[in-house]
Amino acid sequence: MNGGHRRLRSLGRALPLSPAVVLLLLFLAGPIAYCAWIAFTDLQLTGQAHASFVGLDNFRRAFRDDAFLNAVWLTLVFTVVSSLLGQNTLGLALAALMRRASKPVRTLTGGVVVTAWVLPEVVAGFLLYAFFRREGTLNALLAQLHLPSQNWLFTLPILAVSFANVWRGTAFSMLVYSAALNEIPREVEEAAEVDGARGRRLWWHVTLPMIRRSIGTNLMLNTLQTLSVFGLIWVMTRGGPGGRSQTLPLFMYETAFQNSMIGYGTAVALLLLVVGSLFSVVYLRLLRTEV
């Protein structure tokens, strides 16, 4: 078989890849490249033709813009509270409890938590909006316990949307950790128990080290998902009141569309994309043995 023939054959074999590659290049790689270009221009919503190259102006402007810094800070709070502390820890706790619980309770809890996850984002937003409103369920419960009620969406909007994200996203961590815990051979834990390791020590020295790769993967995916939450916050607070729950995606949207500064909004998008890519790379490294 000569080289030309072989090349032709491998070309033929790669042919089924082409629809996917074309779609990905045009609609995913294209916009990313375009993003990297218009982030350095002063493109506005009106007058597309006259965008000019402005270098790093958009970025300089961002770091002097209090609204941007506020959004960075809120994104950090939102990510730490809802993803690291909330979804991840609660998901692990649920998975651990499920191993010991009776089957009906396990099925019921799993069903409820997964339903919250499967619901469309906007519906989840309404449900949690109703839950946190002044006239909502949370305050009704607090009143029963004789605790003061308040309008959570006004007093602590970022915490309210963080809890909403925990409600919506915990199922994913729970499923990941359930799968990971099920893969630990029973003998390992039993052997450790025979050696006298119990409760917290068993967890700390045996169980957690055995699922550390799942923990890494899950943290990365949770964080990436949380970085791109838009609909949930939009429905609950629109980023308000007064920008107090305006995370970066909402800030980006407002800058680009309500304030018509596409160039500036895209610069913010590019920063978000870069942060996301860094997390992605770490995630790939965690998985590197599997590809």
Partner: peptide
């Protein structure tokens, strides 16, 4: 790598 990119971030350039 692409599976974990925040799609939200590219919506403004996609719109443009």
């Amino acid at each position: 790598f692409a599976t974990s990119l925040p799609i939200t971030a590219i919506m403004v350039p996609v719109y443009a």
